[in-house]
Design a protein around this nucleic acid. Structure first.
Length: 488
RNA sequence: GGGGAGUUACGCUAACCUGGCAGACUAUCAGCCUUGGGCGCUGAUGAUCCGAGUUCAAAUCUCGGACUCCCCA
């Protein structure tokens, strides 16, 4: 810093006095606030107002999911927010699972309603009650639907923006209906593949785990969860893929007429993701300067920051406008920050918002016919000739994505810990480290017993990976690896 | 499910115990100075969660409510 520089080190503001690795919860709240993703000041716990920048990122993310669903033969529909109590309570396990956390409308104005109306905590019941009218014959199957809706759950525990909320604003849920069990099972596989493609695009690391039989989704035959780990060591369920079997079709009477002129009950699956995915993206990729958004969902992929000097604004502005036009022509989402704040202030702000690339244009650059390109992930600065800018930015965006994915995969690997015995876990595991894997024989009794001994809840097991050692409970050969962890 | 703490301007906070002009920082707005990593200066806007009680007088004391946070099962 030059001696004549009036800026003093001490008066410098600090966006993040909070260290992400030391205090993740506070870091997360602050990062979301500074980047203007959501406004958590909305006066209901667990319900947040989405701000323009955050909502743009969310929409970009969802559009990728929509593309994948459309591409695999799903059709978009919409079902109402409210579900009559008589419909909501038709499937017993489902009712037991969601009754306690549902909001229920009991009156309109001062008039008490004849029948109570449930605000959907998820849409199964409301949907299936009507879809049964749509299905007549085998020719109507398979039927693959999805909708993007808000759902409400009265969370009593701590809430956290995007991760654990009372109003899930964008629940993108798919529901499918099939003629037989094989087709339904196949659909589960397709859904898992769709989600793999999606989370890979979002540069998120995950592990697909099958939920143990004693812990499945209410009303399910079996289900899989896409699990990731956030920096405080807690597991987070990014997506759930559920085989409902005939449970709901029996409860709701969803039947089709088959070729033998008999009626058969349909087999169903459902699966969904939400804005939690965006929350996890921010949690995993952010650093002590704020967010880092994957280029694929960044509302602004490149921010142009003019560096003004008195009397030299005109040429700088002109160069910036030209660069912006060029980049937009190459389909790079570009913004220009021509506000009169100091350059440094703007740098910090756009870094906090997670914009992948910054382009600095000052009088020196104009003279040289170049611009300074700065990567958000490495903060590396590089002068680039204006003619080469479009190409360079494209390549750099790709490179940032590759780098982010690499980092994220390495990150998850560190947070999934493999142990051989309960004793090892007790000796070496501390809460904030991540998920715990132990060999398991496949018996419910043993799964529950391990859970109790190590005091960490079961999450699910990796179906496709055999375990090396002996079951951590009974000592018989381990069939698979069971994972344990605290979750959101 | 049980327990505890709290609520003052967009945000953070002082005054509370011991009742007496609600003060600072930040932000915002107007202007100046500036702009290659948060500089500085002048001025302005803006607040005691809601309801009741005690009192000459309540952010402050008492009671009730709402909401928020934390801890334990």
């Amino acid at each position: 810093m030059a001696e004549n520089d009036k800026r003093s080190e001490q008066s410098r503001k600090v966006t993040f006095s909070i260290d992400k690795s030391q205090n993740f919860p506070d870091w997360y709240d602050r990062a979301i606030e500074v980047a203007k993703i959501v406004d958590a000041r909305y006066p209901i716990k667990g319900m947040n107002a989405w701000m323009p920048y955050g909502f743009k990122a969310l929409k970009l993310m969802l559009s990728k999911m929509e593309f994948l669903l459309d591409d695999t033969g799903h059709n978009e529909v919409y079902f109402p927010l409210m579900i009559p109590e008589s419909v909501f309570s038709k499937e017993a396990d489902f009712l037991r699972g969601f009754n306690g956390e549902s909001f229920i409308v009991t009156q309109a104005g001062e008039t008490e309603l004849a029948e109570r109306l449930y605000i959907r905590p998820t849409s199964e019941t409301g949907m299936y009650d009507t879809v049964k009218l749509w299905i007549k014959s085998e020719a109507d199957l398979p039927l693959k639907l999805y909708q993007t809706v808000n759902v409400f759950r009265h969370e009593t525990k701590q809430t956290r923006p995007l991760m654990r909320v009372r109003e899930i604003v964008k629940f993108k849920e798919a529901h499918t209906f099939h003629a037989n069990a094989e087709d339904a099972a196949q659909q589960v596989d397709e859904a898992i593949n769709v989600y793999k493609r999606f989370f890979d695009m979002m540069l998120l690391p995950y592990k697909v785990l099958r939920t143990p039989s004693w812990d499945t989704f209410p009303g399910a035959e079996y289900n899989y969860d896409f699990m990731s780990v956030i920096p405080d060591g807690k597991g987070i369920e990014l997506a759930s893929v559920i085989n409902l079997g005939k449970k709901f079709s029996l409860a709701f009477g969803i039947q089709y007429q088959n070729s033998q002129n008999d009626y058969s009950y349909v087999y169903q699956t459902c699966y969904g993701i939400s804005e939690r995915t965006l929350g996890t993206i921010m949690a995993i990729h952010g650093d002590n300067n704020g967010l880092l958004l994957p280029p694929i969902i960044a509302p602004t992929q490149a921010i142009i920051v003019p560096i003004y000097y008195a009397g030299k604004e005109q040429p700088v502005n002109k160069a910036c406008a030209e660069i912006r036009e060029t980049l937009e022509k190459s389909n790079i989402r570009t913004s220009l920050d021509s506000r009169q704040n100091t350059a440094g202030e703007k740098f910090y702000e756009w870094e906090a918002k997670g914009v992948p690339i910054r382009i600095e244009v000052g009088p020196k650059d104009v003279e040289n016919g170049s611009a300074v390109v700065v990567r958000r992930d490495t903060r590396e600065k590089k002068p680039v000739k204006v003619e080469e800018l479009s190409n360079h930015i494209r390549m750099t965006l790709d490179d940032i994505s590759i780098n982010m994915k690499k980092r994220a995969d390495a990150y998850l690997k560190e947070r999934i810990l493999h142990f051989d015995t309960v004793e090892d876990v007790k000796k070496e595991y501390k809460e904030r480290l991540g998920l715990v894997g132990l060999p398991w024989c496949g018996e419910e009794r043993c799964g529950r017993s391990i859970e109790e001994k190590i005091g960490i809840p079961t999450i699910g097991y990796d179906e496709h990976k055999g375990a090396k050692g002996k079951c951590a409970s009974c000592g018989n050969p381990g069939k698979t690896e069971m994972f344990f962890g605290r979750t959101y």
